[in-house]
Amino acid sequence: MLTIKGRSVRTVDGYAVDLRTFFRFMKMHRNLIPKDTEFAKIPIYDLNADFFRTIQLSDVYEFLNYSMKDRDNNSKTRARKVSSLRGFFKYLTVNTQILQENPVKNLELPTVRKTLPVHLNMDQSVALLNQAYQATKSATRWRDFCILTLFLNCGMRLSELVGINIQDLDLKAAELKLLGKGNKERLVYLNDACKQALEQYIQQERANLKVIIDKQALFLSSRSGKRIGARQVQLIVSKFLKESGLGGMGFSTHKLRHTAATLMYQQGDVDVLVLKELLGHVNVGTTEIYTHVSNEKVQQAVENNPLAHFKAKGNEK
């Protein structure tokens, strides 16, 4: 998956977790281990082709039922598990012919309920940026303000932000190269807010770091001089959300991506196909979750109907 299909490390790790969970469940389900064995410690190194040949579709349904009831997995998580299993058994039958029959060929994906993405409104976004800007009175906090500015203006993913290198940035051309899912590169154009935040971070903070270990990385840990990690960015975002009075409202780092996309679509009149390219989506169907419209726009659309002020003759009153 990494080499041939070009999937991200995070995606591959997720599939590996799904497969390990399924195999451990199978050994537990078939009573092949002592009953007091901790689930996470169930060994699966001894499984082989003979074991895989015994798996039936009913086993997978038992596993999905277990995932829902015992592990509280939602439909989206269970859908990923189904994708993992279908990919694995397709590999065993089509690619390697280890199995003659694919036991999950008729396995359907669970229906995933579509929900509106959680996002900050305009006032909340401004409050968050103001809170981070106030912290820049300390010269060592420009990085945090810059990170929030990029999230809210460019709609980039967390993995894309932490992966930015210095050579990916061209401030004169106002361009930033991102490495997205599936190792696909795309260009993001920087507005004035992003350019100013990047310039301040590079000049006021990054240039003054005493130790720089990862010289290529744009965003660095001020303590270690190494590339900032995803978890550290999440803690930064959580900190400023809390300080700006937005903590405990379901907002997170990924919700800032939702926010950027929603604000651009609702208030920036950005076309959905343009938004698709900006966000790095493969299919426009993925982008459409960001194109939900506000109640105000629905009301405005009804008011703008040319028949809105129609009055039947004889009913002028």
Rank of each mutant, 00 (worst) to 15 (best):
F151N: 04
L220F: 11
L275C: 04
L278F: 13
Q267D: 15
K27E: 12
R30Y: 13
T136V: 03
Y61D: 13
V302Y: 12
L187G: 11
V237G: 07
V272S: 10
I42Q: 00
C154G: 13
Y15L: 01
K177T: 15
V237N: 05
K5G: 11
N315I: 00
V12F: 08
A135D: 08
V282F: 09
E296N: 10
T3S: 14
Y66F: 15
P117E: 15
G314K: 02
H258S: 12
V188H: 09
A308R: 15
Q216S: 13
R227N: 11
E62R: 00
V17R: 01
I33L: 07
Q100Y: 05
D144H: 05
T253L: 15
S244A: 15
V118G: 00
L246W: 07
K105H: 12
D214P: 10
L47C: 06
K184P: 03
N283V: 07
E62H: 01
N102I: 07
A132W: 11
E205A: 09
K215A: 09
K105A: 11
H119E: 12
V293G: 00
D269W: 04
T93L: 00
A79P: 03
L128V: 08
V112G: 14
S244G: 10
I213F: 06
D214V: 12
L169R: 02
K311G: 14
T149D: 03
Q232F: 00
W142H: 14
H281P: 10
T140Y: 09
P34V: 00
G180Q: 00
L241E: 06
G87P: 12
K114P: 08
Q299P: 04
G225C: 10
N74D: 13
G229M: 14
V211T: 07
G314S: 06
E175M: 09
E101V: 14
V118H: 02
Y66D: 14
S138E: 14
A312F: 13
K35N: 06
C146D: 03
R7M: 05
V237T: 10
L273K: 12
V94G: 07
K90W: 01
Q234V: 05
D123A: 07
M26R: 08
S159Y: 09
M156Y: 09
N102L: 06
M249G: 06
L273Y: 12
Y201F: 14
C194N: 13
V302T: 10
I164V: 00
